[in-house]
Write a protein that binds this DNA or RNA. Structure first.
Length: 719
RNA sequence: GGCGAGGUAGCUCAGCUGGUUAGAGCAUCGGAUUCAUAACCCGAAGGUCGGCAGUUCAAGUCUGCUCCUCGCUACCA
């Protein structure tokens, strides 16, 4: 598609259960915004849609925790996130929300079409059901003991302490969080999207058609999924928060959030069209529309496999590209809101973007640094020092300094007006600079169109660098000293500054997608209007009219003091300490060691996970005994498992334990441990495990043996 | 364990179908300069291209093995 008729650009819908951090910004929203601003400058027909993802179980769960309703949660976060994006210059054409009626209609229609066409399957399965609440329980509504780490407050989909993904069936002693009762199994029917039917299509479309133009990591990830065998995926759930399944008798069932969320792109487009008197249909149905999804790498499977399969079945166009980014780390560690190691967009805005702190210029400062370290091909690292350095030595010293020099000199040496260019005096340096301007245009075009924003932005600064050198070589301030005896030198001064000013105007065009706030300031100084930023004007040397009076220079950026950076770093650590303390307080003295950032973000902080009260008889069912580890070896093809031989006095048992990440086999031989000896045996990795070792987890997530103060005889009862 | 993506100067990254002394920006050091937010300009130093073997006249670039990081996945009592 060389010149598409129109573009539809999407950025991943943020989940409306909390604030979003700068890693999200760097991963999806910023690159998408740069791309869109670039397209707009080219007068392309482009719509940039995004919005809050407001369904899914984490929303009502969050509501329970905050003691409010699901509706209140989304009504709280939706406007905050929307405003955060606006403050950072992310220029959505619409920031919609999936709770909107038009989205419900759109998603139901979508489901309906697939269902009526026979593109879905139904299956009956056994699911946990809360008899008191008379409802099926979504995974998140079931709690129990984590089979991996023993955390008693693990959820049915994931243990937040150890980060393990779970299914409700794996929980030990499952309990409904609605009534506190043990749930029962009950049959329920659900609709499935049989992805397995589309393997051939996906293989051809992704691997053959886009094997070259999509990012290697995206293609690789897809290939991995397809090769792993695509399975039917449940499209509906038993839950009361979401979009009702549009089928007779499907009461209490809603569309699974992964199904309705991407459809949010379509409903957002519809709403945008309504608001602007446009027709939405070509954007999703016409082959000449270029659809691009900007996402983080955690979203690849949805946007490259599942949603395209849905779109194809529904008769829509498919994405032309899905430029997924990797992750942004923070000062060397994974970013995670729940762990307290993150910079929320809101934090940055409060500390830097408020008018008294720097305003839009500081939004551009963040945009600049995040783009310069964009995790396009691998995870990258945000550091405050790096932020300050990139800002000071590139944005300010090279870019802003050139603009300032050109303006100051123009005012000092050319009477505050754009000087005339004397064509008869043009020299090789002038010609070369002019060539550089034109070359920059093409370099930026090529880079942006291939989603290489880091490189594109580099070219902007690089042009400013060349401009600095040009000015340095020409030295108009030196020439000015001899004007008295050689008045003809004024012509050379004029030529130099004429070019520098035209180049400044070009810089504004080039920088516009990246630094929109700064560029507005430049336009003001040059007394020109937005229209000048049209991409067609790039490369032109007639952007500023000869004789035109320009405003006095004003600094584009303020200085960032070392103390500010030190304060931010300090703040970061303070927040971490605070979050860790809060976690420790609520989860019985333990904090997650390394909860996966994304997963942790989508769920709220673990709450005190007190188990239901039991009677002595319940406890007495356990047969706990001391044992001594006689030998330990790593289990083949399993990262976490050790196979232990444990001496229980009267017998020696084989126990498989998930502690390999914490102990070397030879470290633990001879250790005394406490064993649950009457636990039903279970086979793991082909080894029969005849018991369970009790472990305690410390605040860092490390496991420790629970054992007698002094060594005693193996087989001693514990009670 | 399986799969995927990466591992190139202190940092962030370029290096296409193998071919002159492996490049850029930042940081560092030295010099020059003052129009400019001590910025700009010039110069220097800095890499056995994760490791080992192989193919080749020639490998950062191809093949095999291996180590490390990240992600997905399996295992998880």
């Amino acid at each position: 598609m060389n010149q598409p008729k129109r573009y539809l650009i999407t950025a991943a819908l943020p989940y409306a259960n909390g604030l979003k951090h700068i890693g999200h910004l760097a991963g999806a929203y910023l690159p998408a915004d740069i791309y869109v601003r670039y397209l707009r400058a080219q007068q392309r027909d482009v719509v940039f849609v995004c919005g809050s993802d407001e369904h899914g179980t984490a929303i009502p769960i969050q509501a329970m925790k905050e003691g409010t309703t699901a509706q209140a949660i989304i009504d709280k976060y939706h406007p905050i996130i929307q405003q955060n994006f606006a403050d950072l210059g992310i220029s959505f054409d619409i920031y919609h929300r999936t709770s909107a009626p038009i989205h419900h209609e759109t998603a139901r229609e979508f489901f309906d079409v697939l269902n009526k066409n026979g593109d879905l399957e139904t299956r009956e399965t056994e699911q946990y059901y809360d008899e008191q609440a008379q409802t099926f329980l979504a995974d998140r509504y079931i709690k129990g003991t984590c089979p991996n780490c023993g955390n008693p407050g693990a959820y049915g989909d994931q243990c937040e302490k150890c980060g393990t993904s779970l299914s409700p069936d794996e929980l030990i002693n499952p309990v409904s969080t609605l009534s506190g009762n043990a749930p029962v199994k009950k049959a329920t029917t659900h609709w499935y999207l049989p992805l397995n039917r589309h393997e051939e299509f996906l293989r051809g479309w992704i691997l053959k058609e886009h094997g070259e133009d999509w990012r290697p990591s995206v293609v690789g990830q897809c290939k991995s999924w397809i090769d792993g065998g695509l399975q039917p995926r449940a499209v509906t759930r038993d839950l009361d928060w979401g979009i009702k399944v549009p089928v007779e008798g499907a009461d209490g069932k809603v569309l699974y959030v992964w199904f309705d969320a991407p459809i949010g792109y379509i409903s957002a487009t519809k709403q945008w069209a309504l608001d602007n008197g446009k027709n939405w249909e070509p954007y999703w149905n016409d082959e000449e529309t270029k659809l691009v999804h900007f996402i983080g790498k955690d979203n690849i499977v949805f946007h490259c496999i599942i949603f395209p399969a849905m779109l194809k079945l529904h008769g829509n166009i498919l994405p032309e590209n899905v430029p997924a980014n990797e992750f942004l780390n923070l000062e060397g560690d994974k970013m995670s809101t729940s762990r307290g190691w993150s910079i929320e967009m809101e934090d940055y805005i409060n500390d830097w973007i408020k008018p008294e702190n720097g305003g839009g210029a500081m939004a551009d400062a963040l945009r600049y640094y995040l783009t310069s370290i964009a995790p396009e091909s691998k995870d990258s690292d945000f550091t405050w020092k790096g932020f300050q350095q990139a800002y000071t030595s590139e944005l300010v010293s090279v870019f802003a300094n050139f603009v300032n020099r050109a303006f100051v000199l123009m005012h000092k040496l050319c009477g505050g007006k754009v000087p005339v260019f004397h064509n008869d005096l043009i020299d090789d340096q002038d010609k070369q600079l002019i060539e550089e301007i034109k070359a920059t245009k093409e370099k930026i075009e090529t880079a942006i169109e291939q989603y290489r924003f880091r490189e594109a932005q580099f070219e902007v600064i690089d042009l400013a660098r060349k401009a600095n050198k040009y000015m340095q070589d020409k030295e108009p301030w030196i020439l000015a000293k001899s004007l008295a005896e050689k008045p003809e030198l004024q012509k050379q001064i004029d030529n130099c500054l004429h070019l520098c000013l035209q180049l400044t105007a070009n810089l504004a065009i080039f920088a516009n997608p990246f630094l929109p706030f700064t560029v507005q300031k430049m336009l003001h100084m040059m007394k020109v209007v937005d229209k000048m930023l049209s991409w067609d004007n790039a490369g032109s040397l007639k952007l500023l009219s000869v004789g035109y009076t320009l405003r006095a220079p004003e600094l584009l950026f303020r200085k960032i003091e070392d103390s500010e950076i030190a304060a931010q770093i300090e703040k970061l650590h303070a927040r971490l300490a605070k979050a860790q303390a809060a976690l420790a307080a609520t989860s019985g003295g333990a904090a997650p060691a390394a909860a996966p950032a994304e997963k942790a973000d989508k769920s709220a902080k673990p709450e005190a996970a007190a188990k239901a009260e039991i009677q002595y008889d319940d406890f007495a069912k356990l047969d706990l005994r001391t044992g001594t580890i006689l030998s330990a070896e790593k289990v083949e093809k399993a990262d976490k498992l050790l196979k232990l031989q444990v001496d229980l006095g009267t017998e020696t048992r084989t126990i498989v334990s998930g502690i390999a990440m914490h102990y070397q086999p030879d470290q633990i031989v001879g250790k005394q441990v406490v064993v649950v000896t009457n636990l039903a045996s279970r086979k793991m990795r082909g080894i029969e495990s005849q018991g369970m070792i009790l472990m305690a987890e410390d605040a860092s997530g490390k496991l420790h043996f629970v054992n007698p103060e002094e060594k005693i005889n193996p087989g001693a009862g514990v009670s």
